[in-house]
Write a protein that binds this DNA or RNA. Sequence first.
DNA 1: GGTTGCGAAATTATCTATAATTCTATTTCG
DNA 2: CGAAATAGAATTATAGATAATTTCGCAACC
Lengths: 222, 222
Amino acid sequence: MDKQRDDTIASRISRALAERIISGALTPGERLRQDHIAEEFGASHVPVREAFRLLEAQGLAASEPRRGFRVAAFDLKEVREVAEMRAVLEVLALRHAIPHLTAAILDRAEAATAAADTSRDVRSWEAANRAFHRLILEPCGMPRLLASIDDLHAASARFLFSAWRSSWEARTDHDHRAILAALREGRGDEAAKILERHVGWIGRTPVKTAAGEMREAFSIVG
Amino acid sequence: MDKQRDDTIASRISRALAERIISGALTPGERLRQDHIAEEFGASHVPVREAFRLLEAQGLAASEPRRGFRVAAFDLKEVREVAEMRAVLEVLALRHAIPHLTAAILDRAEAATAAADTSRDVRSWEAANRAFHRLILEPCGMPRLLASIDDLHAASARFLFSAWRSSWEARTDHDHRAILAALREGRGDEAAKILERHVGWIGRTPVKTAAGEMREAFSIVG
DNA sequence: GGTTGCGAAATTATCTATAATTCTATTTCG
DNA sequence: CGAAATAGAATTATAGATAATTTCGCAACC
């Protein structure tokens, strides 16, 4: 009841809902009824509406005028779209970040990769993976570009969680290590090339559901 | 008083304010006082707040919690940022649009270029230029990507108008014609390369003000 | 005498509560 | 069986209350 400094009710609701949408607790296409959400958060529906607009800007919710908001739906086409946008934007960010990269930053990025490799569940893997990308891109110093990339990462995470809801096995991320090696040795173009392929790769893979059945799901690498 | 179909008061106010911000009628850093704006539009302040949030999503306004909204400021650094983001995203869109481009679309794009070349003022040049880009990119069928590009175009227009407020001279856009020629002859890679350079180029040029003095301003090509 | 710090008033953003318009779904009648 | 009308529910807008910030003035100190 004390974090009111620069923290409005609308943004708090927005973060809570974003968390639920990304994690899959709120399913794509589901209606967002402002009265119910307002009641749940003990607030009125005006800040809830503002939260919806914030989510809309991140591409997590969609507004249908006079008909309310829904959780944004997505299909394989949009997964591809997000991956390709991330690929070109992250390459752009990396190119500008390279002159400002320090050994300390690369060490922290390596630690993030190590954390991802030993993750026991999707959530912690995603957090570590996102930290890796953030670390090597942030020095570009382009706030608008970084904000766009963050939004795309949120969308990516949503797709990821929708596929690997239950099972997860650790694996070593060779791309991340190759990117770091190239960066350490001053081969920036090669690092950018690996990053572009790494982020842009999308495929379909068979996934075992909780019921033991096999189904197709999106496969996202990084 | 009849365009109420899918048109909420908030979005109408948002469009009106976006127009003013882009045209320069509202200057960067200026405070947006919701009560005054609400009174001007004969509405209450809640839809005005929503309009602010929409502008924020487009990068035209910035929110300072508990301190209200301001018209987004910008400097040469951000002009560069927007131009480079546009360059990589438009190239991505063009690559996906190429398979779906028809002769009819290219003809309409050529007409848009012709309209730009004969424009007598910045406003109509910008509208024609934007139409050209929209026409050749829209067939990519990637809604999220196109929405991002639209927002970046709005920002670009803002920068453009801030430079060429008064004087304007028509000139032939050779880049547009080269892009069209390459597309017609199936040389997609070359078209993409020209587009990337065309959009990404940013410089400073001396500009004659209304008072007859010379000052530096942003120079944006396309 | 000028500057700095404190305090109160006014302005402004934010939230709650209430009313009106619109969409959806169900039911009834042709 | 289909279409229209009505009832219910939810979004959208208005008005009023609350809390925070800024601004202005006064006093004290350098």
